[in-house]
Design a binder for these strands. Structure first.
Length: 590
DNA sequence: ATAGGGTTAG
């Protein structure tokens, strides 16, 4: 710039301006860039396509998209590169409409799009997760006409676009047709299965990939570990871990973070903390993952200890760290500690609490029975509470059987999210547990009228590498008779020791025997029974469930852990229960 | 001269 300022302006050639602008763009110095632009204007230098491109590049690199667009509109541009530059910028800020507009304008101007143009526009489709896929499809077929489907990169971005827009079948077709699959193709397809909830297909594809000779990289490993984590397949996760060690990637930061998360979500905090302790370098995500892991398992004290250790290590907690530690407090009933962190966050760390933080606090208060205080807390929030905030209080009302307050809270929830079946089901359960059958019926009608669907309860367990799925009241599993016989025996044993079935959780109107039968059909009981019958003696029974665990099942699990001498680890939609010697790690806070 | 996939909380 010094040299530029001193030089005789009229003698500077266009290509020199280009070089200087290029530099300004790369250094992101808008001030200098603007100065060069004004010199160009003052000296009446003609802004041709080449110089215009540099100007646009300089502005967009400095984050001045609208300035860049002004220049773009002024210059005559016949080069595809400049159009790509512009389209890519709009794709980055997810301005879907502008991307499409420029794309069409470009075609009208007779400029031939290249594969990069397509990748920019498809990236924008993917980012917006567009519900209407017809545009994406037409861009796809247009790309085929130009034979871009021979290019692996083009296919990969297409695959990703379909996957992010929720069309798994189309994504899979693209994958099948990709002739030269790269590691990115495989990773994207694994991710596509994972996104659609087909976690075991994701894991299967990973094994297919390794046997096909394509070597997974850290992106692939993170993706497959995430699939293991979501499905809770500890055995699959361990086999991936073995692969990682074999490749010498066991010290990689990303891989370790994903590994820890996998172990935590598969119910093994021992393995998670082992990975954590052996990491040579830890970042904030590593710490947040371990804190959240302890929280999920009801190890509140350990979560707090990790949080303090992180601060001693000189890592500044971020918003997620506080969500994790508050969540841990709430699942361990540590109300005072929770308040303390909520204050530290604001006063010491200067972090403005977000909706998630408020949700944690409402959860903390209402879970521990301070329902009225939680209500006042919501009323005093400086930002507008959303459905999850009121939903947390509604959950608390269920735990503490407060029907009156639940009705008031539900009004807020239904107003904010009228289409979410979860909340209607939650209120219906509160009514059912209070035996208010008329109200239950009314709500069921309401759910039906709105065309909403309740997710059926479903549990699964891994035995010898195979996943066995149980759905409530579903007798299709070949061993269901044997399981039921076992459960009946357990129930008799419980009754002898004075544990009566928690009939209010049968959620149905009927006589006691009917209720007891309904409770016995719960999917988590079936899965636990199957595990006890089929796993070698002494081996921990690990069961996953898609919804919250039922209270009666919780009692039975405690009892079974005592009579069989086994540990039972049960993962529900947001928490782990460790049953051992007749008690549970959650100590009632869930 | 430009490019594609991944890890935490809810």
């Amino acid at each position: 710039m010094e040299w530029f300022r001193l030089s005789e302006k009229p003698s500077i050639s266009s290509s020199t301006y280009c070089a200087v602008l290029q530099l300004c763009g790369e250094l992101k110095s808008l001030q200098d860039g603007k100065e060069v632009h004004s010199v160009i204007s003052c000296n009446d230098v003609q802004i041709n396509g080449i110089l215009g491109t540099r100007l646009v590049f300089m502005y967009v690199s400095c984050g001045e998209l609208s300035q860049g667009r002004l220049v773009f509109d002024q210059v005559v541009n016949e080069k595809v590169f400049l159009w790509n530059l512009m389209i890519n910028e709009y794709a980055k800020v997810e301005d879907f409409a502008e991307c499409v507009y420029l794309f069409q304008k470009m075609l009208n101007a007779g400029i031939a799009a290249d594969s990069y143009t397509f990748s920019c526009i498809l990236k924008c489709f993917a980012a917006s997760g567009c519900s209407d896929l017809s545009l994406g499809r037409s861009v796809h077929s247009f790309g085929i006409k130009l034979h871009f489907n021979k290019e692996t990169k083009f296919c990969n971005i297409l695959l990703d676009m379909y996957s992010k827009c929720g069309d798994l079948a189309a994504a899979s077709r693209v994958f099948e047709k990709t002739s030269e699959r790269s590691v990115v193709s495989w990773t994207s397809m694994i991710q596509a299965y994972s996104r659609s909830g087909l976690l075991h297909d994701a894991i299967r594809l990973f094994h297919e990939m390794t046997s096909s000779g394509t070597k997974p990289d850290i992106f692939t490993l993170s993706a497959v570990l995430h699939a293991c984590a979501s499905s809770g397949s500890l055995e699959s996760g361990k086999s991936v871990h073995n692969y990682i060690t074999g490749q010498g990637l066991e010290s990689n930061l990303f891989v370790c973070n994903a590994l820890m998360d996998m172990y935590a979500k598969c119910g093994s905090m021992e393995d998670a903390s082992l990975v954590f302790s052996q990491m040579p370098v830890k970042d904030i995500i590593s710490w947040n993952t371990i804190i959240a892991g302890y929280g999920m398992h009801g190890f509140g004290k350990e979560a707090i200890r990790a949080f303090e250790e992180m601060r001693r290590d000189g890592i500044k907690p971020d918003g997620v760290s506080f969500i994790s530690v508050l969540y841990a407090c709430s699942h361990s009933g540590l109300v005072n500690e929770g308040w303390r962190f909520f204050n530290i966050m604001q006063k010491e760390c200067k972090i403005e609490p977000s909706l998630e933080h408020y949700a944690c606090m409402v959860d903390l208060l209402s879970r521990s029975g301070k329902l009225q205080m939680a209500y006042e807390f919501i009323k005093g929030m400086p930002i507008k509470p959303d459905a999850t905030i009121w939903g947390a209080l509604l959950c608390g009302c269920r735990i503490h059987h407060d029907v009156k307050l639940a009705e008031r809270v539900a009004e807020h929830v239904f107003e904010l999210e009228p289409e979410n079946a979860r909340y209607y089901v939650l209120l219906a359960n509160i009514y059912a547990e209070a035996e208010k059958w008329e109200e239950v019926k009314e709500l069921r009608v309401k759910i039906g009228r709105r065309g909403l669907k309740k997710h059926p309860g479903c549990s699964w367990i891994e035995v010898k590498g195979k996943v066995h799925v149980f759905v409530a009241k579903d007798g299709s599993h070949p061993e269901v008779r044997k399981i039921e016989a076992l459960l009946r025996k357990v129930r008799e044993g419980m009754k002898k020791e004075g544990f009566s079935p928690k009939l209010r959780y049968a959620l149905m109107n009927g006589d006691d025997l009917e209720k007891e039968m309904a409770l016995c059909g719960h999917s988590e009981k079936l899965a636990m029974g199957f595990g006890i019958l089929n796993l070698p003696p002494g081996k921990t029974v690990r069961v996953m469930k898609n919804l919250r665990v039922c209270r009666d099942c919780h009692e039975m699990a405690k009892f079974m852990s005592k009579t069989t001498g086994r540990e039972i680890i049960l993962r529900d939609s947001n928490f782990f229960h460790h049953f051992k010697d007749g008690s549970c790690s959650c100590r009632g806070f869930w």
